[in-house]
Write a protein that binds this DNA or RNA. Structure first.
Lengths: 192, 192, 192, 192
DNA sequence: AATGAATGAGTTTTCATTCAT
DNA sequence: TATGAATGAAAACTCATTCAT
C-alpha cells in the first residue's frame, strides 16, 4: 500500500532465503507470500510469474557479480594479481551474502540454459582473463574452457563444502590458498 | 510383460534419462511410465514413490562409484598414483555413462542432506586418501575438507563444462592435466 | 463467489448429506465439490484434507450436542427429569436434523478411537449423570459404563430403526416411552 | 494348491480380523492376500470380488446366528424365558467370537440395505417373538418395531461399550441384568 | 488352483495463476 | 496497489481386478 519498493525488497529477500532452503521447486507462491507478509495475489503486482521472480533474482545478481569481478580484476596488472582479486571477491561475497551466493549456485542449474556467454557471466569473466594471460605468456597455452572451469571448481566446490559443514568458515581465510592453487593448477610459476 | 526385473531395469534406464533431461521435478510419473512403456500404476509395484525411485537410483550408483574409486586407489602405492587413478576413473565414468554421471551430480543437491559421511561417499574417499597422504608426508599438512573439495572441484566443474559445451569431449583426454593440477593445488612437488 | 464463510457453509451442508447418503468412503472430493458448486481445489482452501473435513464436522457437532445435553440436564433436579430431558433432546435432534444425527452415528465408527472421554462426549454426559444418581441413591448401585450404554442403546437403536423404516417417525412420539424404559432398565422405581 | 478349503478358511479368518481392525474400506485386497499368505490373484479363485467376500462372510454368519437365536428361543415357553435365552446367546456369542460379532455389527451399516426382513435376521427374530408375546398378553401392546430395537439397543450398545473399554468383559456376566432390563423396558411385570 | 506382474480408472491433493472487491 | 477466495489443470498415488504363466 505504502511503499511498493519496500514490499518488493521483502519479497526478494524472503524468496532468496526460501529458494536456498527448500529449492525453487520446493517453494510455493503461498510460502513466498506468507514469508513476505503479503497476499498471494500481491506477488503478481510485482512479478509476472514465479519464474520471472527467479529469473530477475538470478540475472540481476549474477550480472552484478560478474561486473564486480571484472572491475576488481581490471584494477590489477598481472594475471596472478587478477586471479587473487577474483578469488578474494568470491570469498568475500560468500562470507557477506551466503544466501545470495548459494542461490546463484543452485539457480545456475535451472538458469544456465538461458545464460548467455557474454561478459555478464562470471565464468566468461574468468575465461577471458585466462585467455589474456595465455596471450601474454603469463601461463602456458591450454584450452581456456578447461582452465576456466578448473579455477571455478577450486572456488565453488570448497564453497559447497562450507555449506555442508565439510569446510570451516569463514571462506575468506582460504583466499590465498585457493588463489595459489589456481595459479599452480594453471601451470604458472609466479606463485605467491 | 511378465519379467519384473526387466521392467524394473527399463524404469531405471528411462528415469535416469528423463531426470537428467528435465530435472527430477520436471519429470512426471506419467512421463516415466510412458517412457518405460508401462502403466503409471506399475511404477508403484517397483517403487513406493517417485522419491524412493530417485533415492534408490542415487544411493545405489553413488555408493557403487565410491567403492570403485576406493578399489582403484587401493591398488596404487603413492598418493600421486592414487590420485591419478581416481581422476582417471572419474573421467572414464563420465565418458562411459554420461547420463548416470550427470544424474549423480544433479541429484546431489536434493540428496546431499541425506548422504552420510561414510565410505560409500566419493567425497569421503578422496578426503581419506588425502588424510593418509598428509600423514605420510606426501603432501603438506592442510585442512582435509578444503583439500578434498578442491580436488573434487577440479574434477566436477570441468565435467559441468563438458555438459554445457564449454569444454570439448572426451573428458578422458584431460585426465593427466587434471591429476597434475590436483597435485600442484595440494602442494605436492612429486608431479607427473 | 466471494464470501468464504458462505462457501464453507455450503461445503459442510452438502458434505453431511453426501456422507450420510453414500458413506464417507463412498463420497469423493469430486462429489463434494460438485454438490457444493465449487472447484475441487477450493475444498482445500477450507479444509486441509477430506479427513480434516470429516473430523471437523464430527467433532464440532458431537461436542455441541454433548453440551446441549449437559445444559438441558442441568436444569433438572431429579434423575428422572434429567433423563427425560436428555431423551427428549435426542429425539428432538433426530427429528430436527436427521442428516446431522445420522452423520454423527456413522462417523462414530471412524472417529471413536479419536474421541476423548471428556465432557464433550454424549456418552460421558450420560454416564456422569448416572453416577450422580447412584451417589444420591436415586437408582441402585451398578456399573456406570454398562448403565450408560444401556441408556444409549435404548436411544440409538430405535433411531437406527427409524432410519431403516423399522420404526415410524417422528422420533419424538416415543420420547416418554423410551425415558420410562430407561428408568426401568436402570432399576428406578420412580417411574413417570 | 493342496487344500482349497483350507485356503478359503484362512482368507475368511484373516478377512474378519482385518475388516474389524481397519474397516472394510480400509482393508485392501493386498492386505487380505498378505495376511492369508496367498497371492492377490488367488483371492479371485475363491471369491468373485471383495464385495462378494464381505457379503458371504456377513450373510452366512448373520443367518446362522439368527437361526441359533430362533432355535434357542423356541425351546422356551414364556416370553421371559425366550428373551433370557436370546440375551444369553448374544453374550455367549460376543465372548466366544468377538471378532465375528464385531464384524457383523459393522457390516450391518454396509449390508443392511441388502438385508431382507425375513427370519434369517436377528432383528426380525426378536421382533417376531415380541409380537407373539403381545398377542399372548405377556407384555403390553406396543409398536413391535420400537420394542425390538429397544431390546437390540440394550444388547448392542453395551457390546460396543465392551469393544471400546467402557464396559468390563466378559459380556456374559451382564446377561441377567440385561435380560431383566429388557423385560422392564417392554413393560413386563414378570421379572426375574 | 495358484501366482504375481500389470493394469487403468479413479482418488486425493497441489499450486501457479486469475479475478472480483 | 492490495487482497484473498477461487480456479482448474495436472500431479502423485491407490487398488480392485485381469491375465499370462
Amino acid at each position: 500500500m505504502r511503499d511498493a519498493s519496500e514490499t518488493r525488497r521483502k519479497i526478494q529477500h524472503e524468496a532468496l532465503r526460501l529458494f536456498v532452503d527448500r529449492g525453487v521447486g520446493g517453494t510455493t507462491t503461498r510460502d513466498l507470500a506468507q514469508a513476505a507478509g503479503i497476499a498471494e495475489g500481491t506477488l503478481y503486482r510485482h512479478y509476472e510469474s514465479k519464474d520471472a521472480l527467479v529469473w530477475d533474482l538470478f540475472s540481476t545478481h549474477y550480472a552484478t557479480f560478474a561486473h564486480r569481478l571484472t572491475a576488481r580484476a581490471s584494477k590489477c596488472e598481472t594475471f596472478a594479481a587478477k586471479l587473487a582479486a577474483i578469488v578474494a571477491e568470491f570469498c568475500r561475497f560468500f562470507d557477506a551474502e551466503p544466501v545470495l551466493f548459494r542461490f546463484l549456485m543452485l539457480a545456475q542449474h535451472q538458469a544456465l540454459p538461458r545464460i548467455t556467454n557474454d561478459s555478464d557471466n562470471p565464468v566468461e569473466v574468468v575465461q577471458t582473463i585466462i585467455a589474456t594471460a595465455i596471450g601474454r605468456g603469463e601461463i602456458p597455452a591450454q584450452p581456456t574452457g578447461l582452465a576456466a572451469t578448473m579455477v571455478l571448481g577450486l572456488l565453488l566446490q570448497p564453497a559447497i563444502g562450507l555449506v555442508y559443514g565439510r569446510v570451516e568458515p569463514p571462506f575468506s581465510q582460504y583466499a590465498e590458498t585457493i588463489a595459489t592453487a589456481c595459479l599452480k593448477a594453471l601451470g604458472s610459476d609466479h606463485h605467491a
